[in-house]
Design a protein around this nucleic acid. Structure first.
Lengths: 210, 210
DNA sequence: GATGAAATATACCGGGGGTAGATAAATTCA
DNA sequence: TGAATTTATCTACCCCCGGTATATTTCATC
């Protein structure tokens, strides 16, 4: 959680000795700050302005809107993955671990709401359904790994299921998240409990057989 | 599955006695046909042209891009819901019912691929994350009902979980669908099997307790 | 100082959704 | 019969956004 960098300079020309020119990190930092403040529908031009710079610079350093979305998604995923890891760490009971994971997810969602919407929405426009999927890609492989070991997958057949499961879990959390952000009809703890129940016991619930 | 109506007329002026003017259903029919043929990124203008008409007409009869998406989503959902109901009908074993449901979903996805992408992607642009959620809204309530009875939810607390579960299931299927459309690395039957496993037994799998 | 390199700005293009205002045909009525 | 009205549509435009070609400014070097 670094202090957002102030825009450095708006003046063309080669930078003098002490100056640091605008770079990719600066642009993304400013983009994030603006999205937090203004919401998920900000334009590339607005992001550029926030960085004290114009559009082609954003294009030059980061590489177009998709790249901005992907860059921010990456940072966001890193943070959330860290938080999730910390939350889950050391829990022996798998159900408790899942619950902690879900809770960490919802916590991150509340903290980074606008950013999350920007990143999953492909930046408010231009969205193939591909953009949200690219967001999922960044965490799917890692999650699949965890799921496989949680489930104790040994056979090749079992392990092959892990990847679609990971996308499934991500999609489930994502949709519930969007719905919850809109309705806000229950507490985070309640929702986490309900999701954990579904994730852990499935639709079968606590029935014994089959 | 009606025969797509041919474009009626491109001429302004009040229609003569026998003529039927362009209406909402015609526009949506042509939109669907075009999307099937050209893919999910078609523009409103292209849709209008397919209907032998211009943009303001689409706006007049249907009401803007969001309304087109919503209208098509509605039709698609109806068809898929019917198919799912038929597939599930009469199955006693809940796991088999879920499997049939998942399989019907994947079948519909393959049949209506472009349309599905258009509708869930908010039409290739302009998308809040809200648009995909509005698509989910159309089936969430009904699905929640089924899930509640499948799980045998009695208490108020249990029933309160049904709605987020429904969104969760929809989101799970949706994400897996997008991923599967892209990778296409396994058969539909395999994927249905894997998804059914996750949905029915959850991450717990077949462990006995907790 | 001239030259070149680095960093950025200006100004434009194309496309998409949305909309105001003009237009054309058929019915209705003096 | 011919004007007014109603109905259905088209033409032309606006604005915003992402993307890009080109000009410009500043510093370092020779």
């Amino acid at each position: 959680m670094s202090m957002p960098l102030e825009p450095r300079r708006r003046r063309p020309g080669r930078p003098s000795a002490g100056e640091t020119p605008v770079d990719r990190a600066t642009v993304l930092e400013c983009a994030e700050r603006l999205i937090r403040r203004e919401g998920p529908t900000v334009s590339l031009e607005a992001i550029a302005a926030e960085a004290g710079v114009t559009k082609p610079i954003v294009y030059h350093h980061v590489g177009g809107k998709d790249a901005v979305v992907e860059g921010l998604a990456w940072r966001l995923n890193e943070r959330h993955a860290d938080a999730a890891r910390d939350a889950v760490a050391g829990r022996r009971d798998p159900a408790a671990a899942i619950r902690a994971f879900v809770d960490a997810y919802l916590d991150g969602l509340e903290r980074d709401r606008n950013l999350y919407l920007y990143v999953t929405g492909g930046g408010g426009s231009g969205g193939d359904p591909e953009s949200v999927l690219r967001f999922a890609d960044q965490s799917a492989a890692g999650l699949a790994e965890r799921l496989a070991q949680l489930r104790g997958a040994r056979t090749k057949k079992q392990r092959a299921a892990a990847l679609p499961w990971a996308y499934g879990v991500i999609g489930m959390l994502h949709f519930v998240a969007l719905w919850w952000l809109r309705t806000a009809d229950r507490s985070r703890a309640e929702l986490a409990e309900q999701l954990t129940d579904l994730l852990w016991t499935g639709l079968r619930g606590n029935r014994s057989s089959r």
